[in-house]
Amino acid sequence: MKTSTVVLTVLGSLWILAITVGMFILMRYAHTPSLAKTSGDQWPSHSQITLSKTAPTLIMFAHPHCACTRASIAELGKLVVHCKIKPKSYVLFLSPTSMPSDWEKTDLWHAANSVPGATVLSDINGVEAQKFNSYTSGQTIIYNTKGKLIFSGGITGARGQEGDNLGLNSAILSLQENSSKNQTASVFGCSLISSNSK
């Protein structure tokens, strides 16, 4: 075997390996959920958002600049469309006072506005998120009319990936059954709070 062939074979193998490792890392990152805490079982009384008495109340917390949240909003749209019981939906975008005004008014804001029945609100300094114990963009919580938490988690299968996933199915299921059973799912998204705040 020629030296050049050997060199090429070695190089080719290393090349394949490097790419495989890289892709693996990338895949792993994509499928690794963010830090998520379960919201309280009962609707926090000090929330500025009013619990609906006629339909479950769904709140998605979103970071206006998180690329992964695009998929979450898209999945929210599917959820709203496909569920027979339409929840009262809110999308709360983090709006730090330290950032320029309208910092939260990104394309995601506009995408959320296009979700049927969804109310898009600015969450000043993430106060509401903290009330619901939500720290990851894309985290979605659903309370029934009685103020009981029936779902908490992400509605995408991986970072920024649309499509059938366990979180979305759980959310739909919890809405359809209007159960009181608390469902949870991994959340894939950016953190709503900085590391220093954690």
């Binding site: 790419i19 890289g22 892709m23 990338l26 990152y29 970071h63 600049h65 998180c66 690329a67 992964c68 983090l94 730090p96 330290s98 950032m99 993430g126 963009s137 920024g160 950016c190 953190s191 709503l192 709070i193 900085s194 590391s195 705040s197």
Partner: peptide, 23 residues
């Protein structure tokens, strides 16, 4: 599409940018 990854008001370069560049 995904220039940066955020933590609150703090952002870093998104891994996708590095992936596109390196991989």
């Amino acid at each position: 599409v995904s220039p940066r990854a955020w933590e609150g008001t703090v952002s870093t370069v998104h891994i996708h940018v590095w992936a596109a560049l390196i991989i």
